[in-house]
């Protein structure tokens, strides 16, 4: 993840430098500890809601991990790429492997009815901490039930036409393919270069209103819907920022001010 896009990073960095000198401006950055704590609070509510988020440790180590959610989306066989020919036929000699003698599923629901129309695409969302950008990054991939990953074009084709128009102007153009830094598998990533654009106003508003903000929640509720990930409204009421003592890097005075008005309950 690190160092891939010096160019963008460079555009992004100068803002942070000015942040360091101007203590009144809200910082768009997040240290890893706060990331973990914010995720923890988010996960707590998710498990309360049964919303499907979980913390995945990598190689069983406490140190590395990410927040993950899998969502299945039904799709029609005929109209979608999830069952396209290239995905299932590898040689075209499948027919040779068929065995009629096994055909006696008397009590099964007639497969044509049950299986036709009942294909699905699996969307997998990962929230990772990026050390180089010092912010959370959303990775995702979509795959068929056979395990084949969809190309970005196929993912795009699965987006409802009503949304396509809007997304073209929005942050869809920041989606890029990257190797998952922890799994080493190809994933799509919402590039962090636009994060500051929407986090700064949100954080500044919250600061002005002396409200505590859970960075993960605010961020995810903006970037999630872009790639079909919903964040139920009840998170906003239930999930606050980590307790002030945990915010090691925040100036003590401002942290306590923001936390005293609204803490996690």
């Amino acid at each position: 993840m690190c160092g891939e896009m010096e160019n963008t990073e460079w555009n992004f960095r100068p803002v942070s430098m000015s942040d360091d000198t101007d203590s009144t401006a809200a910082s768009c950055y997040l240290d890893e500890k706060t990331f973990r704590l914010s995720c923890g609070l988010f996960l707590e509510h998710s498990s309360f809601l049964n919303d499907g988020w979980a913390w995945e440790e990598v190689n069983g180590s406490e140190k590395e991990g990410y927040m993950k959610k899998t969502v299945m989306v039904p799709c029609r066989i005929s109209s979608t790429p999830c069952q396209s020919n290239q995905s299932r036929l590898v040689d075209g000699d499948d027919a040779l492997l068929e065995e009629e003698q096994l055909c006696d599923q008397d009590e099964a629901v007639g497969e044509p009815t049950a299986a036709e129309g009942q294909a699905a695409v699996r969307y997998e969302y990962h929230v990772l901490y990026s050390c180089s950008y010092q912010i959370p990054v959303l990775y995702f991939r979509a795959s068929t039930l056979e395990g084949r990953s969809l190309s970005l074009e196929e993912v795009w084709n699965n987006v409802h036409p009503n949304y396509q128009q809007r997304l073209l102007q929005g942050p869809w153009d920041t989606i890029t393919q990257q190797e998952h830094p922890l799994l080493g598998q190809p994933f799509f990533m919402l590039h962090p270069c636009r994060t500051e654009e929407f986090m700064r106003p949100a954080l500044e508003t919250a600061r002005a209103e002396r409200k505590g903000v859970n960075y993960i929640l605010t961020w995810l509720s903006v970037v999630g819907p872009v790639v079909g990930l919903d964040v139920p409204l009840s998170y906003a009421l239930a999930v606050g920022p980590p307790a002030p003592k945990a915010e090691a890097t925040t100036a003590a005075s401002t942290a306590s001010a923001s936390a005293s008005t609204s803490g996690p309950d």
């Binding site: 290239q86 299932r88 499948d94 068929e98 065995e99 003698q101 068929t144 395990g147 190309s151």
Partner: peptide, 28 residues
């Protein structure tokens, strides 16, 4: 007993998947 899964064509046969796009390092 029964239980062998039908393939995507609805026939009694295996399924197959081509993952070269996401597994072949050269394609990657």
């Amino acid at each position: 007993s029964v239980g062998w899964e039908k393939n995507q064509k609805g026939a009694m046969g295996p399924r197959s998947v081509n993952l070269s796009e996401c597994m072949d390092p050269k394609r990657l």
